[in-house]
């Protein structure tokens, strides 16, 4: 998967780049609109991660440019400007998703994967790790071929884990992923603990294995067997 990160803040761009590289993406970064235009025309990217506020213009212009040039990369807007009209305009212009700064890198990963899935880019329908298979289209989770009976929230959680396998998911990032922006004001990570506990119990009952590791103080990690 080839991703272009367009972000004027160097450190933020570096954060995304090193995270995505570890995830196995081919990642390039650029810090201005003009440069981004050149790159988009010259190379083919599967997805563009786009900051709206750039030194030489608004990121929305780039979306228009891409639509004119019939460049069919996925577009994920990432902006601190969480004004509703910006979000709506971006999506109207043809962006695939919108992520508000500050975001969790694991959330970025989940959104990217969702875009790829929707665009059917790598042909993957279901995601498999170890003997766990999660199919977002049918909302079905299988463990060792047997269906797992999960609540919608638990399913979301498992999908998030599987997408971000071998990564530490902080409780906050899980909470925000499950409950969206609302968690800003709720911020009670006990709920995350409860959900993870239930999910672990169900996986354990079905397969006798516990893939989810508690990372002391920080959160949880879904371990892929080597």
């Amino acid at each position: 998967m080839k991703v272009l990160v367009i972000e004027d803040n160097l450190e933020l761009a570096r954060n995304m780049e090193s995270f995505l590289r570890r995830e196995g993406y081919v990642c390039e970064t650029t810090h201005a609109l003009n440069e981004a235009r050149d790159k988009i025309v010259s190379f083919k990217y599967d997805c563009v991660i786009l900051d709206l506020m750039l030194p030489d213009g608004n990121g929305l212009e780039l979306i228009e440019f891409m639509k004119e040039q019939r460049i069919e990369s996925g577009i994920l807007i990432v902006s601190a400007k969480n004004a509703l009209d910006d979000r709506v305009r971006g999506l109207d212009l043809g962006a695939d998703d919108y992520l508000t700064k500050p975001f969790h890198l694991t959330e970025l990963n989940a959104r990217l994967r969702a875009i790829f899935r929707r665009r059917n880019l790598n042909g993957e329908r279901a995601i498999s790790v170890n003997d766990v298979t999660v199919n977002p289209d049918t909302m079905e989770a299988l463990i060792a071929g047997k269906p797992l009976d999960l609540t919608p929230k638990e399913f979301e959680l498992l999908l998030y884990f599987v997408i971000n396998k071998n990564r530490v998911l902080t409780r906050q990032s899980i909470a925000e992923h499950l409950w969206g922006d609302y968690i800003d004001h709720l911020a009670n990570v006990d709920f995350v603990y409860q959900h993870v506990k239930n999910l672990r119990k169900k996986i354990d009952q079905a397969s006798g294995r516990d893939y989810i590791e508690t990372v002391y103080g920080l959160g949880y990690k879904f371990n892929a067997l080597k």
């Binding site: 933020l12 995304m16 601190a80 500050p102």
Partner: peptide, 13 residues
């Protein structure tokens, strides 16, 4: 929010 996002990313990495 931008510096905060950087700090958060660094800590996660």
């Amino acid at each position: 929010l931008t510096p905060l996002a950087i700090i958060r990313g660094k800590l996660e990495l």
